[in-house]
Amino acid sequence: PEEVRRLVEELYRKGVSPEQVKKILKKQGIDEREIEKVLRRIG
């Protein structure tokens, strides 16, 4: 979803590592598979 992409990109631009991005967003209840999809697209 758009909102997940925005959150991931925001953290990524701040220099947060992909592993940390995953941890942070998982705590917020976001599906890990969604996060990984976005990270793959960015990375």
Score class of each variant (00 low, 15 high):
Pro1Met: 14
Pro1Gly: 10
Pro1Ser: 14
Pro1His: 13
Glu2Pro: 08
Glu2Asn: 10
Glu2Tyr: 04
Glu2Val: 09
Glu2Ile: 10
Glu3Gln: 11
Glu3Lys: 08
Glu3Ser: 11
Glu3His: 09
Glu3Val: 10
Glu3Leu: 13
Glu3Phe: 09
Glu3Asp: 12
Glu3Met: 10
Glu3Asn: 11
Val4Cys: 03
Val4Thr: 08
Val4Gln: 02
Val4Asn: 02
Val4Tyr: 03
Val4Phe: 04
Arg5Asn: 08
Arg5Gln: 13
Arg5Leu: 12
Arg5Thr: 12
Arg5Phe: 11
Arg5Met: 12
Arg5Trp: 09
Arg6Val: 09
Arg6Ala: 11
Arg6Tyr: 07
Arg6Gln: 11
Arg6Lys: 12
Arg6Ile: 09
Arg6Ser: 08
Arg6Thr: 08
Leu7Ala: 07
Leu7Lys: 09
Leu7Trp: 06
Leu7Val: 07
Val8Glu: 00
Val8Arg: 00
Val8Thr: 02
Val8Pro: 00
Val8Ala: 07
Glu9Met: 08
Glu9Pro: 00
Glu9His: 05
Glu10Ala: 10
Glu10Asp: 13
Glu10Ser: 07
Glu10Met: 07
Glu10Gly: 05
Leu11Trp: 05
Leu11Gly: 00
Leu11Val: 01
Leu11Tyr: 07
Leu11Thr: 01
Tyr12Arg: 11
Tyr12Leu: 15
Tyr12Ser: 08
Tyr12Lys: 06
Tyr12Asp: 05
Tyr12Ile: 15
Arg13His: 14
Arg13Thr: 11
Arg13Gly: 11
Arg13Cys: 09
Arg13Pro: 01
Arg13Val: 10
Lys14Met: 12
Lys14Ala: 14
Lys14Arg: 12
Lys14Ser: 12
Lys14Glu: 13
Lys14His: 11
Lys14Ile: 08
Lys14Trp: 06
Gly15Arg: 03
Gly15Phe: 02
Gly15Asn: 06
Val16Gln: 09
Val16Pro: 00
Val16Arg: 07
Val16Lys: 11
Ser17Leu: 10
Ser17Trp: 05
Ser17Val: 08
Ser17Ile: 07
Ser17Thr: 12
Ser17Arg: 10
Ser17Asp: 12
Pro18Lys: 11
Pro18Gln: 11
Pro18His: 08
Pro18Arg: 14
Glu19Met: 07
Glu19Asn: 09
Glu19Gln: 10
Glu19Ile: 08
Gln20Glu: 14
Gln20Leu: 12
Gln20Phe: 09
Gln20Asn: 13
Gln20Lys: 11
Val21Thr: 08
Val21Asn: 00
Val21Gln: 01
Val21Ala: 08
Val21Pro: 00
Val21Gly: 01
Val21His: 00
Val21Ile: 15
Lys22Tyr: 08
Lys22Gly: 05
Lys22Ala: 08
Lys22Glu: 07
Lys22Arg: 13
Lys22Met: 11
Lys23His: 12
Lys23Arg: 13
Lys23Tyr: 06
Lys23Asn: 13
Ile24Glu: 07
Ile24Asn: 04
Ile24Gln: 08
Ile24Asp: 05
Leu25Tyr: 00
Leu25Met: 05
Leu25Thr: 00
Leu25Lys: 00
Leu25Asp: 00
Leu25Ile: 02
Leu25Asn: 00
Leu25Trp: 00
Lys26Gly: 13
Lys26Asn: 07
Lys26Val: 15
Lys26Pro: 01
Lys27Asp: 15
Lys27Cys: 06
Lys27Thr: 12
Lys27Glu: 15
Lys27Met: 14
Lys27Ser: 14
Lys27Arg: 13
Lys27Trp: 07
Lys27Tyr: 08
Gln28Asp: 07
Gln28Gly: 06
Gln28Leu: 12
Gln28Tyr: 10
Gln28Met: 13
Gln28Trp: 08
Gln28Asn: 08
Gln28Ser: 11
Gln28Ile: 13
Gly29Ile: 01
Gly29Tyr: 02
Gly29Glu: 03
Gly29Ser: 04
Gly29His: 04
Gly29Arg: 02
Ile30Val: 10
Ile30His: 10
Ile30Cys: 04
Ile30Tyr: 14
Ile30Thr: 02
Ile30Ser: 01
Ile30Asp: 00
Asp31Trp: 02
Asp31Ala: 07
Asp31Ile: 02
Asp31Thr: 07
Asp31Gln: 06
Glu32Leu: 05
Glu32Thr: 06
Glu32Cys: 04
Glu32Asn: 05
Glu32Pro: 09
Arg33Met: 11
Arg33Phe: 07
Arg33Ile: 10
Arg33Lys: 13
Arg33Asp: 14
Arg33Gln: 13
Arg33Cys: 05
Arg33Asn: 13
Arg33Leu: 12
Glu34Thr: 13
Glu34Asn: 04
Glu34Trp: 06
Glu34Ala: 08
Glu34Pro: 00
Glu34Phe: 05
Glu34Met: 10
Glu34Gln: 08
Glu34Val: 13
Glu34Lys: 04
Ile35Lys: 00
Ile35Asp: 00
Ile35Cys: 01
Ile35Pro: 00
Ile35Asn: 00
Ile35Gly: 01
Ile35Thr: 03
Ile35Phe: 02
Glu36His: 02
Glu36Met: 02
Glu36Phe: 01
Glu36Pro: 00
Lys37Ser: 07
Lys37Cys: 04
Lys37Arg: 10
Lys37Asn: 14
Lys37Val: 06
Lys37Glu: 15
Val38His: 13
Val38Thr: 06
Val38Ala: 14
Val38Gln: 13
Val38Leu: 10
Val38Asp: 02
Val38Gly: 05
Val38Pro: 00
Leu39Cys: 06
Leu39Asn: 03
Leu39Ser: 04
Leu39Ala: 05
Leu39Lys: 02
Leu39Tyr: 01
Arg40Leu: 08
Arg40Lys: 13
Arg40Asp: 15
Arg40Gly: 15
Arg40Ser: 14
Arg41Gln: 15
Arg41Gly: 15
Arg41Lys: 15
Arg41Tyr: 08
Arg41Thr: 15
Arg41Ser: 15
Arg41Pro: 13
Arg41His: 15
Arg41Cys: 10
Arg41Trp: 11
Ile42Arg: 05
Ile42Gln: 05
Ile42Lys: 05
Ile42Trp: 04
Ile42Pro: 06
Ile42Thr: 04
Ile42Asp: 05
Gly43Asp: 15
Gly43Gln: 12
Gly43His: 07
Gly43Phe: 01
Gly43Val: 15
Gly43Thr: 12
Gly43Met: 03
Gly43Pro: 06
